[in-house]
Simulated assay, not measured.
Amino acid sequence: MRVLLIEDDRMIGTAVQQALKDAAYAVDWVTDGETAIHAAESETYELALLDLGLPKTDGRDVLRHLRALGRRLPVIIVTARDGIDERIEGLDLGADDYLIKPFAMRELLARMRAVLRREGSGASPVLSNGKLSLDPATREASFAGESAVLTAREFALLQALLARPGTILSRSELEQRIYGWNEEVESNAIEFLIHTIRKKLGAAAIRNVRGVGWMVDRSS
């Protein structure tokens, strides 16, 4: 699941980026409003984390632009601006949630899961196709009587497949959902992750469509 992090504070941005990666999100981090708008126009994201005090273009104007694009992109404002009027303005401009700095990383992750559940973006309490299940809170997967806790990358890959059961995803599509900008991706990274998931859950957990990609069965 890919997240756009819009934060100009290097210390906060580094900490949030690492926490999101550890939680199995692919993260693209930008540090000014103009770059944020360009990223949102050219890439597809499941969620954006938006600071308000940005250089070049203020966060409120970024939010206005995101809403004017006509795409449904959930946005959580993450800012030190804690006035009630500013919170109301942010929500009225179209933000889905508003979190005040400083914050606990666990709370940010919980708010992200809650927003994504409302969007129906594969972050339900337990994601399942009737045979294969995945719990985002614990990263535990179950299939055919086997259960295992997945690594962050394994979880991200299986979550991408379970979000669209019956749909074949190519290597490039899976890479886009798992890795952020400037992350080095080895040529066999996707195959290796699928191998390790199958080793934990069984070979039938993920189906290979030769020459096309991979899928999980439709919900049953």
Rank of each mutant, 00 (worst) to 15 (best):
A141Q: 06
I77P: 02
W181I: 12
V149E: 10
L161D: 02
E46A: 10
L150H: 05
L157V: 09
D22C: 08
L108T: 05
F143W: 08
A137C: 13
K56P: 00
D32C: 10
A189C: 09
L169Y: 06
E7N: 12
G122L: 02
P136V: 08
R113F: 00
R177A: 08
V212C: 09
L201A: 04
T14V: 15
K200A: 13
V30C: 13
L150D: 01
E89K: 02
D97Y: 00
V3Y: 03
R67P: 05
L47Y: 04
R210S: 14
S142R: 09
K101E: 01
I168W: 04
Q159Y: 10
A141D: 09
D32E: 14
T44N: 11
A19Y: 10
W181A: 15
T138I: 14
D61W: 12
A141N: 08
L150S: 03
A95V: 00
I190M: 05
A203T: 14
I84C: 05
P165W: 08
L69D: 09
S42T: 15
I84P: 09
R207I: 11
Y45H: 04
R81N: 13
S42F: 15
P102V: 04
G211L: 12
L63R: 07
R207K: 15
T167F: 14
R164W: 08
Y25S: 05
A203E: 13
E183H: 14
A15S: 14
V30R: 01
E89H: 00
R72P: 06
T79A: 04
L50D: 00
K56F: 11
E186S: 14
E175K: 15
D8A: 11
I84K: 04
M105K: 01
L99P: 03
D85H: 10
R164I: 09
V185M: 02
L69T: 13
Y25P: 07
R106E: 02
E107P: 04
R177Y: 01
W181V: 12
H38G: 12
A144L: 08
R198N: 15
P165G: 06
A48K: 04
